[in-house]
């Protein structure tokens, strides 16, 4: 009944219970900007099935937090996934310090629903900061399936513009920096407004800091352009068990880890999301200044 190969595919590699291979190996770690790194991690089961819009939850080792990270890319053949991590606190800083050959105890996924992608027409993909890594797999797949893609990429300075070359290889690209050191000076919303004024656009996808996504939604709403944002609330399990990732969408409580992370932007209560992200601000300060633990 069961064939050997079907079964083997399920219990083989990446299996932390196999002696000597505990954990998920870091294949490489490249620094993309001052605080952003690109890690390639061996996680064959995830790599085999993940789709744009999905994420993993990683836990570095005993005592570490479970944190969500978008799957920026994958290579099913090599059995690897790519995550782009901005070091903002304790857990992300510990992760970007890993070297090739190091192991991460737990990588679970792919989590979340795949993106709802349009298959024709024109899409604008707007990314702020590390949101570029969230938007990249979406934009690329859109281009692959025949949608016309315009990418608006925002960053503080030229140094922190992420994935510009990759985007440019398949999409029209507008870069904006706060200081004008790359592309045009100004906010992504300014560039977006210009694009929307001159082009007929079917959908806008946006990922980045909450104020940026909120601002994008404010631009597109009066124009009646469908807009999809990738939300980033605090998560624990990623399976719908804790409710910590709850967000209010169209007045209804939704769990971002299972119902999202993408939602219709015009329905999202961004103020609540931004506020709830600050729940542990004090604790985070303690964590990042606490040095007595030997592990990190």
């Amino acid at each position: 009944m069961t064939t050997e190969s079907e079964h083997a595919a399920m219990t083989e590699d990446g299996d932390p219970s196999v002696a000597g291979t505990a954990g998920y190996e870091v294949i490489s770690n490249a620094k993309l900007s001052a605080d952003v790194h690109r890690l390639v991690i061996r996680a064959p089961r995830v790599a085999a099935v993940r789709q744009p819009g999905q994420f993993v939850i990683v836990r570095l080792g005993p005592g570490a937090e479970r944190i969500p990270l978008t799957i920026a890319d994958s290579d099913a053949e090599q059995g690897s996934i790519v995550v782009v991590i901005q070091a903002v606190g304790k857990s992300t800083s510990d992760l970007v310090r890993l070297a090739a050959g190091d192991r991460i105890d737990d990588v679970v996924g792919p989590l979340g629903r795949p993106s709802d992608l349009i298959t024709s027409g024109t899409a604008v993909c707007v990314a702020g900061g590390v949101g570029a890594a969230v938007i990249y797999p979406i934009a690329r797949r859109l281009a692959e399936i025949g949608t016309e893609v315009i990418t608006v990429l925002g960053a503080r300075t030229s140094e922190s513009v992420l994935y510009a070359e990759e985007f440019a290889s398949f999409a029209e690209l507008v870069v904006c920096t706060d200081d004008g050191s790359a592309g045009r000076a100004g906010l992504v919303t300014d560039a977006l407004r210009e694009v929307l004024a001159t082009r007929s656009v079917d959908v806008v996808y946006a990922a980045g800091p909450v104020p940026m996504m909120s601002a994008v939604a404010a631009v597109t709403k009066p124009l009646g352009i469908r807009t999809i944002v990738s939300l980033n609330p605090i998560m624990v399990d990623g399976t719908g068990m804790c409710g910590g990732c709850r967000v209010t969408v169209d007045g209804v409580m939704r769990f971002a880890c299972v119902d999202g992370p993408e939602f219709e932007a015009h329905d999202v209560d961004f103020a609540e999301l931004a506020d709830r992200l600050g729940t542990y601000r004090e604790s985070e300060l303690t964590a990042s200044t606490h040095v007595c633990r030997g592990s990190a």
């Binding site: 069961t2 299996d15 219970s17 737990d106 679970v108 989590l111």
Partner: peptide
């Protein structure tokens, strides 16, 4: 095998085949 979410990592149908 921890870190496997059925419905995401594998589907129930895949398990039925395996």
């Amino acid at each position: 095998e921890c870190n496997v979410v059925i419905g995401r990592t594998y589907t129930l149908d895949e398990l039925r085949k395996g």
